[in-house]
Simulated scan of single mutants.
Amino acid sequence: MSWITEYVRPKIRGLLRRDVPDNLWTTCDSCSQMVLTKELRKAQNVCPHCGHHMRVLVSDRLAWTFDNGEFTRIELPLAPVDPLGFRDQKKYTDRLKDARAKSHLDESLVVAHGTIGGHNAVVGVMAFEFMAGTMGAAFGERFVAAARLAILQKSPLVVFTASGGARMQEGVLSLMQMPRTTVAVQMLRDAGLPYIVVLTNPTTGGVTASFAMLGDVQIGEPNALIGFAGPRVIQDTVREKLPEGFQRSEYLLEHGMLDMVVARKDMPATLARLIGLLTHAPADVTAPPPKPVAAPAAAAE
């Protein structure tokens, strides 16, 4: 073997080779354009090419919503792990373990409190990264806990929805969370406290059929899919071609199911203004912007 093959070629290859991280680029779900992940995070996961609002992690959503990115998460109750002993291709308990390991969350709802535009607020964020944000018995426990905390603090409750609906592994117990969350919303109304819902992509199934459509103010992110059944199921059922943009935020705004469609970058200021109007308190327009969030260990879907 010559010295060129043995020594020079490996040196040249070493100089030319660069380790490129797997998550350096992100492909937009809407326009399929490649975007630098670093730049995408600066834009709050909004595609700079088409304006598509991609899904975000719970930690990012909370940091972008509260003043200066500062908030306090609360300890939330857990329901029985596997009340039905459900098993399909794998045990339900194993699915929960996998979801907790990948998302670093213990359930599909996270609740925190802090200030938005200077106003005290309790915020619940559904985690699509945890079993597609599905709603089970533990979710219902947490939603009620969020409502009780808001009542205790005399603060509005803001809920960001992102869900595939009820969790089939819990059967009828999952469906029972629909009236349970509805009762929690009524508790807020009885206490005279605002309840604001921000519907993000996607919000479907039993979530849409219960607490997601009961807000005093209904806000949608741009082009979010919002509905009970999916458009393909509806089209196959009615055997008619659906209107353009059916079940998207803008279509629902036009037909009276939403009060407004708000871009992600404008959401904190909009929430602050609404809370001020609903609680008769002026918004703090000088509230500091949210701090940038360090990249989490778990990647967004």
Rank of each mutant, 00 (worst) to 15 (best):
G133W: 13
G133K: 08
G133A: 07
G133I: 03
G133Y: 11
G133E: 12
T134K: 12
T134H: 08
T134L: 10
T134Y: 09
G136Q: 13
G136I: 11
A138L: 09
A138Q: 15
F139A: 05
F139C: 06
F139M: 10
G140S: 03
E141C: 06
E141N: 11
E141F: 11
R142P: 10
F143M: 07
F143T: 01
F143Q: 02
V144I: 13
V144H: 13
V144P: 03
A145M: 10
A146S: 12
A146R: 01
A147R: 00
A147G: 06
A147L: 04
A147E: 07
L149F: 06
A150Q: 03
I151A: 11
L152Q: 11
Q153M: 15
Q153W: 12
Q153G: 07
K154T: 08
K154S: 15
S155L: 03
P156N: 08
P156K: 02
P156A: 08
P156H: 08
L157G: 04
L157I: 00
V158P: 04
V158R: 00
V159F: 10
F160D: 10
F160R: 00
F160A: 03
F160W: 02
T161Q: 02
T161E: 05
A162W: 00
S163E: 04
S163P: 03
G164S: 11
G165Q: 03
G165C: 04
G165E: 07
G165F: 04
G165D: 06
R167K: 13
R167A: 09
Q169S: 15
Q169T: 15
E170L: 00
E170G: 01
E170Y: 01
G171P: 03
V172E: 14
V172S: 14
V172A: 14
L173K: 07
L173T: 02
S174L: 00
L175D: 11
L175E: 12
M176Q: 15
Q177S: 06
P179G: 03
P179M: 05
P179S: 05
R180S: 12
T182N: 15
V183K: 15
V183M: 13
A184M: 07
A184L: 06
A184K: 08
V185K: 06
V185S: 02
Q186P: 01
Q186W: 11
M187F: 06
L188E: 13
L188W: 12
L188V: 09
L188N: 09
R189P: 05
R189H: 14
A191Q: 11
A191D: 14
G192Q: 10
G192H: 09
L193M: 07
P194W: 10
Y195F: 15
I196C: 11
I196P: 11
I196G: 10
I196Y: 11
V197C: 02
V197G: 02
V198L: 05
V198F: 07
V198N: 08
L199K: 13
L199R: 11
L199S: 15
T200H: 08
N201S: 12
N201I: 01
N201H: 10
N201C: 03
N201M: 02
N201W: 02
P202F: 08
P202V: 09
T203E: 05
T203N: 03
T204E: 14
T204N: 07
G205V: 00
G205L: 04
G205W: 02
G205K: 00
G206N: 04
G206A: 09
G206D: 06
G206P: 02
V207R: 00
V207T: 04
V207D: 00
V207S: 01
T208N: 09
T208C: 05
T208I: 03
